[in-house]
């Protein structure tokens, strides 16, 4: 959403695109930062303005600060509330937006404000007061662009790193073999039959995938830790799964040699690759339970 320069409203609005409030009183801006966490986006920021009148409305709960966000690429639009102290800390799912989004900050009335006037309103308004309806702009910033790109390919199949097969009749437990080109998971025959019967069911696909893929990836990550540094490049060259996994981890969070450091990073890497597996599984369980009820 873009507010056109020179736009006029029925009541005085604090915005740099008009002189409803003469400069410098029309200054209204925001700071915003996005970080990718397990494929989702964490938005933090704050409103940047000085205006005791509007601050008072925010504190009293008569107005609210909003971040208005539009992502044309995914046909997605939303508003996110700033806290009453003007700060923002919100998570947005990578499933909803991807690409360049337009954002602006606003302060809008929560309820009808009778007899509204701003102490610094343009002298053209004289001593007029206004009726302001709920959801009306009281302040609005310029529009900015922000990019949202998950670190992962949203289409490419993660489980193509993993081959799942039926184990020997004597096999009693799930086993993971990271010494193959793909991480190879074998199930005892009975478990494999159950898995084969369930894998096409949309209703449980996330739970099932995470139950199998997460421990397999975790073991594979710890296997990487056991590879001596001098053999590491050779191991990568000979194991497609290792090349694929390492290429999908963001360099800033997983710098060269990360796998030799804190073992906790293995769990971080797995959760990054599976984009919040716990949340995905629980959401699916919740959905199943709701459908049962």
């Amino acid at each position: 959403m873009k507010i056109e320069a020179g736009k006029s409203w029925l009541h005085p609005v604090k915005t740099p695109v008009s002189d409803d409030l003469p400069a410098p009183h029309n200054a209204f801006d925001f700071e915003l930062e996005s970080r990718t966490i397990s494929g989702d986006y964490r938005l933090t920021g704050k409103l940047v303005f000085e205006d005791p009148h509007l601050s008072s409305l925010l504190q009293k709960g008569e107005a609210v600060g909003l971040l208005h966000l539009e992502c044309p690429r995914t046909f997605f639009r939303t508003t996110l509330p700033f806290a009453s102290d003007g700060t923002l800390d919100q998570l947005l799912s990578h499933e909803k937006l991807c690409g360049t989004a337009e954002v602006l900050a606003a302060i809008v009335a929560i309820k009808e404000l009778g007899g509204y006037a701003h102490p610094n309103q343009n002298s053209d308004y004289g001593g007029s007061v206004f009726g302001v309806e709920p959801a009306s702009f009281l302040a609005v910033s310029n529009t900015k662009s922000i990019e949202f790109f998950p670190d992962l390919d949203l289409i490419q199949k993660v489980s193509s790193l993993i081959s799942i097969r039926r184990g020997e009749d004597t096999q009693l437990k799930m086993e993971v073999d990271p010494e193959m080109d793909l991480i190879t998971v074998s199930f005892p025959p009975e478990e494999y039959e159950l898995y084969a019967g369930l894998r096409g069911a949309d209703e449980v696909v996330k739970i099932l995938t995470n139950s199998v893929v997460m421990p397999a990836l975790l073991q594979a990550m710890h296997h990487l830790r056991s590879i001596p540094e001098q053999d590491f490049e050779n191991f990568k060259a000979e194991h497609r799964w290792a090349r694929l996994i390492l290429s999908r981890l963001p360099a800033e969070e997983f710098p060269s040699g990360w796998h030799t450091g804190d073992p906790k990073k293995c769990m971080d890497a797995v959760q990054h690759l599976l984009r919040g597996p716990l949340k995905a599984s629980m959401a699916q369980v919740k959905e199943l339970l709701e459908n049962v009820c």
Binding site: H68, R77, T79, V108, P134, A135
Partner: peptide, 9 residues
């Protein structure tokens, strides 16, 4: 939409 935030309604 120029005067109010439609998403709030």
């Amino acid at each position: 939409g120029g005067g109010i935030v439609l998403d709030r309604l």
